[in-house]
Every structure is written in structure tokens, then in C-alpha cells.
């Protein structure tokens, strides 16, 4: 697992209060991990803070699963 993937999963576990085992790449924040719309906004903000990156709203709308978050960040984070 990449460094980005493990950091993303840690944030999701912390913010959504879910077990790490549930945080699979296919897992949807809202359908599988119990997030509501505000939780999802908070997650995006946490990713921005953790990876020092700005995620535009139109891009954020396409991030609804764990895997989508990881792949977006792997493409857009320089470290």
C-alpha cells in the first residue's frame, strides 16, 4: 500500500469512526461508510490539509469512494 493510500485510510478511519477493514478501495463514503454530505466535505478538507493540495469543487464531486480519493491524490500530490 502506498504512503498516500495509508494516510487517506487513516483519515477516513479517524473522521468516520469506522474499522480499517471496512475502508476498501471500492467503499463509498456515503453508501458504505455512513458519511453524510457534511462528512464528505470534511473528508475532502482533511485530504487538502494532509497533502497540502487544493481540490476544486468540480473535482471533489467525483471523489465518492476510497479508491477515487487515493487515485486523485496520487495524481495530484507532489511528494
Amino acid at each position: 500500500m502506498s504512503d498516500i493510500a495509508s494516510r487517506v485510510k487513516a483519515i477516513i478511519v479517524e473522521k468516520l469512526g469506522v474499522d480499517e477493514a471496512e475502508v476498501t478501495p471500492e467503499a463509498s463514503f456515503t453508501n458504505d461508510l455512513g458519511a453524510d454530505s457534511l462528512d464528505t466535505v470534511e473528508l475532502i478538507m482533511e485530504f487538502e490539509k494532509e497533502f497540502n493540495v487544493a481540490i476544486p469543487d468540480d473535482q471533489a464531486e467525483n471523489i465518492s469512494t476510497v479508491g477515487q480519493a487515493i487515485s486523485y491524490l496520487e495524481k495530484n500530490v507532489n511528494n
Partner: peptide, 9 residues
């Protein structure tokens, strides 16, 4: 502005 979405509620 980076206010938490739970700030107001």
C-alpha cells in the same frame, strides 16, 4: 476560508 462543515451546526 477553511471552515469545518460542522462549524455552524
Amino acid at each position: 476560508p477553511r471552515f469545518n462543515p460542522f462549524f455552524i451546526p
